[in-house]
């Protein structure tokens, strides 16, 4: 999937990838896509829940547990 920006969260555990995502998303423009690369096993469900709570769009997951790529579309400021 194509992304406008990437956030490297390899080696980091919950909740740091989520907190970094919340910080990073502020730098994106509305409509842009953020790719988060992580190896924390919880990141798929966590990011989905985070998107539901913050009303950003969860676009999906690529890769497996070794290196997961999750995609989030910024839908509002």
């Amino acid at each position: 999937m194509k992304a406008d920006q990437t956030l490297d969260c390899m080696g980091l555990y919950c909740p740091i990838p989520i907190i970094k995502t919340a910080e990073k998303i502020k730098q994106l423009k509305r409509g842009e896509v953020l790719e988060v690369v992580a190896d924390d096993k919880g990141v798929k469900q966590d990011m989905q829940a985070w998107c539901e709570a913050t009303e950003h769009e969860f676009l999906g997951v690529e890769g497996d547990s070794g290196e997961v790529r999750v995609y989030v579309k910024k839908t509002h400021d």
């Binding site: 919950c14 909740p15 989520i18 907190i19 919340a22 910080e23 985070w50 709570a53 913050t54």
Partner: peptide, 12 residues
């Protein structure tokens, strides 16, 4: 603190 900061990052 993990839950507090995660909650804040979720807009709470």
């Amino acid at each position: 603190f993990m839950l507090a900061t995660t909650g804040a990052s979720m807009g709470m």
